[in-house]
């Protein structure tokens, strides 16, 4: 296994880049020929109808897909310049650099503190003081610290849904990832909590690159800088229809499919 530090990219660098990328699960092709870059310190939204492989695309970035399904990749998936599919990248290092947040808030059993420092402990950080500082810092980043500072060692399940989701974001931030993947992070939350999280993401992009899968077109329009639009063809295999700056894609789409999708959904 190669131990090579992923280079922190400079500003022009593409943190993630899909090059003719395709995935098939148990022999069924989900999408193919997907190529687009993800730029540093930007929010890139992946949108498309249900079943268009958005989540699958997201989960292949940190190779989480490999864990539960029989996956075959094709093409290239570059993370900070290295192909995470073919270059024998250590998945543990990859996952330490890429945080992930899920559809439903899923805190671990245990205290708020335990949740936030889970990744650090996993990677061998034992220094209690350090853990505490990072915990506080991560909670501050997601605006949760003031709400929970007196109960850091209380069960995480006591928090409300919106708070739990922010805790999960803090958990993924604690290891200082370069990229955070979010899989419809607000789909199970009420509008107020969703708004808090959206606001949070626009701040967070200063620190790390964000890739978000969303069903919600308005959300994509509000917070993302770039959008990638996936759509399945008649064989139910998805392709990238359009990629570009959000403003461009929303107000001046090149493809008629994109236009009708956006019109149909938002109109």
């Amino acid at each position: 296994m190669n131990v090579v530090e992923f280079k922190k990219p400079d500003s022009e660098n593409k943190v993630v880049e899909f090059v003719g990328f395709g995935v098939s699960i148990s022999g069924k092709q989900i999408f193919e020929g997907v190529s687009f870059p993800v730029y540093k310190n930007c929010i890139t939204a992946i949108m498309g109808p249900s079943g268009s492989g958005k989540t699958t695309l997201l989960r292949s970035i940190n190779r989480l897909l490999d864990e539960f399904c029989d996956v075959k990749y094709s093409g290239k998936l570059l993370f900070e310049g290295r192909d995470v599919i073919n270059d024998g990248v250590d998945k543990t290092i990859l996952r330490a650099r890429i945080g992930m947040v899920f559809q439903r808030p899923n805190p671990f059993p245990g205290s708020i503190f335990d949740n936030v420092v889970y990744g650090l402990r996993l990677h061998g950080v034992r220094d209690k003081k350090l853990l505490e500082e990072v915990c506080i810092e991560s909670l501050k980043k997601v605006g949760l610290y003031r709400e929970v500072k007196n109960r850091l060692h209380r069960p995480a399940y006591d928090l409300s849904g919106g708070q739990q989701q922010r805790l999960c974001i803090a958990r993924s931030l604690a290891v200082n990832p370069h990229v955070v993947l979010l899989d419809e992070p607000t789909s199970s939350l009420d509008p107020t909590s969703s708004a808090v999280i959206e606001e949070l993401l626009t701040h967070l992009k200063k620190e790390c690159t964000i890739i978000i899968v969303t069903h919600n077109l308005q959300q994509a329009g509000r917070i993302s800088d770039y959008v990638a639009f996936l759509y399945p063809n008649e064989d139910l295999v998805s392709h990238l229809i359009e990629f570009g700056q959000t403003r461009e894609v929303f107000f001046n789409p090149k493809e008629s499919l994109t236009e009708s999708y956006i019109a149909g959904k938002s109109g």
Partner: peptide, 14 residues
Amino acid sequence: VPKDLREASLALGA
């Protein structure tokens, strides 16, 4: 145990 709990742990490198 919900699957996404396992996934969250694996996604952190466990």
